[in-house]
């Protein structure tokens, strides 16, 4: 079987979007959230120091979670202002 194309969307919020200089990325071939983090830390070292949670298809995930084809992954940093 040939490799099936695996694409997904990454939405960034708050300071993560600021550091990525975009609020939306299209990525492919990254199987899980930990691999995604490794990729992002390499491409955008400035986000390493920012804490964030991750959701896949609008559900918060913990640990290493699979990223399904056509998924929507969101990077969710905390806000403190009020």
């Amino acid at each position: 079987m040939g490799s099936v194309e695996h694409k997904f969307k990454v939405l960034a919020f708050g300071m993560i979007a600021e550091k990525l200089k975009t609020s939306e990325l299209e990525l492919e071939g990254i199987p899980s959230t930990e691999v995604l983090k490794g990729y992002l830390f390499q491409q955008y070292p400035e986000i390493k120091d920012t804490k964030f949670s991750i959701s896949v298809n609008r559900k918060q995930v913990k640990g290493d979670s699979p990223i399904p084809n056509e998924a929507e992954v969101a990077l969710l940093p905390p806000f403190s202002g009020g």
């Binding site: 919020f13 708050g14 300071m15 600021e18 940093p77 905390p78 806000f79 403190s80 202002g81 009020g82």
Partner: peptide, 8 residues
């Protein structure tokens, strides 16, 4: 609730 720049 919390805010950051233009987001909440």
């Amino acid at each position: 609730a919390a805010i950051y720049q233009n987001e909440g």
